[in-house]
Nucleic acid binder design. Structure first.
Length: 538
RNA sequence: AGCAGCGUAGCUUAAAGGUAAAGCACCAGCCUCAUAAGCUGGCGCAUACGGGUUCGACUCCCGUCGCUGCUACCA
């Protein structure tokens, strides 16, 4: 009866977040999505490695630290603690937290650099031009405003620099990259992002510089410590470092032996090029197999507007979780926004969605049904199995297809669609109750019919909770426990549910005679936020 | 500026030539097992605008307006 296929491996990453400031909703969003996918894969019985982490080098970090009177490392440690705290608040179950300031990472960076150098893809060249310290980059003359100030940082005067930098021969990989995109059409997702990359690459690739002089906070170029390795040959390797089991030596061999190639890099669209062009080229140079998929998520707006410090409309993820709880936040961002597109946060909409879907449709459904079981069936599940429910039963019809449909949606990172699919069963269940009216059946003494109805509904709730557990693990656990299970969806190692996806994702899995627990609302209805005084601004 | 994409009911989205759909919000009716939840119905008289192709266009073509993204080193 062992239904345990060979464990498939699945490794995925979030971006390694830059620690120049406290974590914001823009970091929380992809991390929640990645967590949901990781949980789904674990649910399917896959062996999962979920990597997140931080990118901690660069002049900006050094500056931020100085501004706060801190040593850079101390500064990083503090910010990292905040990231970690937020991940815990949001119930993010990462497996590895990769920090680019770790010694282990240094070792990987060094080794990787040498590999690429050995391929003849690194060379020293002179770079001259106007340099903006704030941007940390060279500017074209046309990008400067009057007086030689940076166009972006108009209070910063660009400095003339004439310096030697190390370069990576990206140009050499033009054809190989184009072959890759053609051969692996799914390498870059979604489609619009892929098209952007294709168009970019087709314009012809130029080598890019991978070192800076006058940059202290970073790793030195191994053979030439005057130079510091600049972002991409440092940060991207953070994914690789994370693959080394903690007890093993940080070598490329150890890193690549078990979990490579990474199956999914979930990133923001701002760093698409680096993941979809630079990164595969670097790996080709180092003769390392390529990741499977790079998926760029969209950006968030608040009430239809770009978020920004200057606008003063940022969303504080800590405050949001404190106010509404992790599951509510996860649900909103994952269900209401398609991952590959831009999306909006609006508190009124947030409250409406949570109340409608979670408090009313799902929460109340559970509550009303468990109550009926207690009243009409003495508190334990009917002695029935799925075979006792006719195939024409509307819930059975939907339920039997749901596992497949939801899985397909999860696989393609359409978490929104997955939720929507599941909700159709939830809604149908409420409708089914009204149509069959178990309270009337009970009065008429039709015990068997009451039991069938309640069984069908409870099983539908069970399946819905199961399939939603990657998104709302706490609520799913709560539902399962009221249904009499002792399963905790936050228990990563639970043998109770991992590896038995085939059964649990199937409608008809509810055990007969199980004792239900006392019904209590799983999610209290939210109040609409105070209406802001919206004085017309015109 | 060039290239690409988008613009559907108050909101979020569906519908890739054939009577424009769903959820939320709002209103009414019904029910009572339930978290004033649920069910039914209604409202909203929605395809940015202007042309064109077609028997027929949200869908294809052209133009206008608006928004977004990309156009190399934005950690």
């Amino acid at each position: 009866m062992s239904n345990n296929p060979t464990k498939q491996k699945f490794a995925l990453t979030t971006p390694l977040y830059y620690v120049n400031a406290l974590p914001h909703i823009g970091s929380a969003y992809p991390t929640m999505a990645a967590d949901a996918l990781a949980r789904f894969k674990r649910l399917q019985g896959h062996s999962v490695l979920f990597i997140t982490g931080t990118d901690e080098h660069g002049q900006k970090i050094q500056r931020s630290a100085e501004a706060n009177g801190l040593d850079p490392q101390e500064h990083c440690d503090r910010i990292v603690a905040n990231f970690d705290a937020l991940w815990h608040k949001l119930n993010i179950q990462y497996d590895r937290f990769s920090r680019t300031t770790s010694e282990r990472h240094h070792a990987i960076v060094r080794e990787f650099f040498e590999r690429v150098k050995a391929s003849g893809d690194i060379y020293l060249d002179r770079q001259q031009g106007w340099y903006c310290v704030a941007c940390e980059e060279f500017k074209e003359k046309r990008e400067l405003v009057e007086g030689g100030y940076c166009g972006i940082h108009t209070n910063k005067k660009a400095e003339w620099r004439d310096e030697e930098n190390y370069f990576f021969k990206l140009s050499k990989y033009q054809q190989k990259l184009e072959d890759l995109y053609a051969k692996q059409p799914d390498f870059i997702q979604p489609e619009t992002r892929r098209n952007e990359v294709l168009s970019f690459v087709s314009q012809g690739l130029k080598d890019f510089s991978i070192s800076r002089v006058n940059l202290e906070w970073g790793f030195p170029i191994p053979s030439d410590p005057q130079h510091t390795i600049y972002v991409w040959f440092d940060a991207l390797l953070g994914y690789v470092t994370a693959l080394v089991p903690p007890e093993q030596e940080p070598t490329l061999e150890n890193a690549l032996s078990q979990w490579w190639p990474i199956n999914l890099h979930l990133i923001g669209k701002d760093i698409l090029r680096f993941h979809a062009v630079y990164w595969p080229a670097m790996l080709l140079s180092a003769e390392i197999p390529l990741p499977e998929r790079v998926f760029a998520h969209g950006y968030l707006t608040k009430d239809g507007q770009k978020m920004g410090k200057s606008l003063g409309n940022t969303i504080d993820p800590f405050a949001l979780v404190d106010r509404y709880g992790a599951d509510a936040i996860r649900y909103y961002f994952l269900k209401e926004i398609e991952l590959g597109r831009d999306g909006d946060f609006n508190e009124t909409r947030f409250v409406n969605v949570l109340n409608a879907d979670i408090a009313n449709d799902l929460g109340n459904l559970l509550n009303r049904t468990v109550n009926m079981v207690i009243k009409y069936c003495k508190g334990s599940l009917p002695k029935l199995t799925a075979e006792d429910i006719p195939n024409e039963n509307p819930l059975k019809i939907i339920g039997l297809e749901l596992g497949k449909r939801a899985s397909k949606a999860y696989e393609s990172l359409r978490l929104d669609l997955s939720c929507e699919e599941i909700l159709t069963l939830v809604r149908a269940s409420n409708k089914y109750i009204d149509e069959t009216a178990p309270w009337s059946l009970n009065k008429q003494g039709k015990k068997t019919e009451v039991e069938r109805v309640l069984y069908a509904v409870l099983e539908s709730i069970r399946l819905s909770a199961y399939l939603l557990s990657p998104i709302i693990p706490n609520l799913s656990t709560d539902i399962y426990q009221q249904l009499g299970f002792s399963i905790d969806f936050n228990d990563r190692n639970s043998k109770d549910y991992s590896s038995v996806f085939e059964q649990h994702s199937q409608w008809g899995n509810l055990p007969a005679n199980q004792n239900l627990n006392k019904p209590r609302p799983i999610f209290a209805k939210l109040e609409q936020p105070e209406k802001e005084d919206k004085s017309v601004p015109l």
